[in-house]
């Protein structure tokens, strides 16, 4: 019984972190799906989202507003607006001028953008770890108090539910809305979509904005869940989310979701049953295996040949 609870606890830990990876991975996968490029500045957009949310929370606290839903919604909206603007600006500054050139050029300009944003936050906010207030406290306990107790915190539930809502809304948006249809058209054939009167520049901007907004959601959620943020934490998270996107099949939105969850669970199971030291070995080892045996990822379409 105790071992079973332990297993479920690790599963919950993994699913929590995995759904957050999935939210960030969407940004990578959508941009790749549409223009076939990897947005290496995406991790920084996520980090900026977390910082903006923290600034908004602190600001509201100084104004004396203490009602939790207001704080969360205002922080979320601020983070989404700032991150989306950043996402849009990154596309305008680092991608649009070099789009259509050799593939390496946008890649390098994205890495430059990432370094720039990291250092900008370093200068503007300082390089120390900043504590993030745990706004959502408490949770459910399972099992008897004298042996191992499994806990499912309200924060973890919030992360699952928010991710689920975001993913559902995104799927509906892509499959039902006019812009979503245009997105699919652009991802299938950008030249043809252009000929048919779709404003491809606008669609590409929209892709960056949507990805950035979801990254901001992840930034707020993970900031609260972990408890501290620093200017470098977007880099590792970005790397993990990128792995998740490739694992699930880059370019595929359900793939990003699946990849995120698999990565999160495999990480927590490795730390839980093997050792935390092998966590990254297993997750990146998994990536190598997938690339060797199924290069398109778990749910990727085989005909994509862009990088």
């Amino acid at each position: 019984m105790q071992d079973l609870l332990y297993f479920f606890q690790q599963l919950i830990n993994g699913l929590t972190i995995g759904s957050a990876y999935a939210l960030i991975a969407i940004g990578y996968t959508m941009v790749y799906g549409i223009i076939g490029m990897i947005n290496f500045a995406h991790g920084e957009i996520y980090m900026i989202g977390a910082y903006t949310a923290l600034i908004a929370i602190t600001g509201l606290a100084t104004l004396g507003i203490a009602w939790l839903p207001v704080i969360l919604i205002v922080a979320l909206i601020c983070a989404m607006i700032v991150s989306s603007t950043m996402g849009w600006a990154v596309e305008r500054v680092a991608y649009r001028p070099v789009r259509g050139r050799h593939r390496l050029i946008p890649l390098i300009s994205a890495i430059g953008m990432s370094i720039f944003l990291q250092n900008y936050v370093h200068l503007a906010q300082g390089s120390r770890n900043i504590g993030f207030p745990a706004l959502i406290d408490g949770g459910f306990q399972f099992g008897s108090a004298d042996s191992f107790q499994m806990s499912l915190s309200y924060m973890q539930i919030t992360i699952f539910i928010t991710t689920l809502i975001c993913m559902t809304l995104l799927s509906l948006f892509i499959s039902r809305s006019r812009t979503g249809r245009a997105c699919r058209a652009v991802s299938q054939d950008i030249g043809m979509a252009n000929l048919l009167g779709i404003d491809t520049n606008r669609i590409i901007s929209a892709t960056f904005v949507i990805g950035a907004a979801l990254a901001a959601v992840a930034g707020l959620l993970l900031g609260m869940y972990y408890g501290s943020i620093d200017p470098l934490f977007g880099f590792i998270a970005g790397l993990k989310a990128f792995t998740a996107a490739v694992l699930g099949g880059i370019g595929s939105i359900p793939g990003a979701m699946l990849g995120g969850l698999i990565l999160g669970v495999s990480e927590s199971m490795t730390s839980g049953y093997l050792s935390g030291e092998y966590k990254d070995v297993v997750s990146f080892g998994l990536l190598i295996l997938i690339l060797l045996f199924k290069p398109t990822g778990l749910l990727g379409k085989p005909e994509v040949e862009k990088i």
Binding site: I17, Q149, Y226
Partner: peptide, 21 residues
Amino acid sequence: EGITAGDKDFSSLVTKLKQAD
């Protein structure tokens, strides 16, 4: 056991510590 410096998620480690009593 070792962890990775710069990591943010220690939920698995904490669960393991709990299990090890």
